[in-house]
Amino acid sequence: MNAETKKRTIKTIVIDADKCDGCRACEVICSAYHADPKFGSNNPARARIRVIRDPLKDVYIPVYAGEHTVAECAGRDKYIIDGKEYDECAFCRASCPSREDFKEPDSGLPLKCDMCEGEEEPWCVKVCLAEALVVMEREEETAEEETEELEDLEVGLESLASKYGKDKILEALARMTKED
């Protein structure tokens, strides 16, 4: 087994919700950057970051779009922090059936933050003069183990099998082998 460790850089956006002034500049620039052509159109509903805000309750939580989930949570909890009540969704990155956030408004397709890959820093961070969003990079040691990747593969295959049945998967595999 190959136990060699590798270093990889992990980008972290530190979200200081106390500093957020609720202006939504992050949403505007995110939607512009991800437009085609770049910066050609603006629509915060397409943003991969949303400020969950409730001004009279002093709730301001910038949230990034994460994985899509097909099912909504069975129950939704409330958090009370420093006397302020937050819906659990205020901290959740998922695009899910229970809310309109993180979905393309026309198609409903899920959106996911890509940290503006290729840019020196994410655009939301660049425009956040309140410094509620700050990007940090840290190095993490990871063990590059093939078995893990295999595990991933198996997990993936299992879910496909449960959806389509093993026969269909085998057929598809056979077809793909022929095409190769």
């Binding site: 512009a32 437009a35 770049k38 910066f39 050609g40 159109s41 603006n42 629509n43 509903a45 408004p105």
Partner: peptide
């Protein structure tokens, strides 16, 4: 409540 796009004419220059 609105979820449509607002376009700009010359994106790079405007940005």
């Amino acid at each position: 409540r609105g979820t449509n796009d607002i376009q700009v004419a010359r994106p790079e220059e405007y940005l």
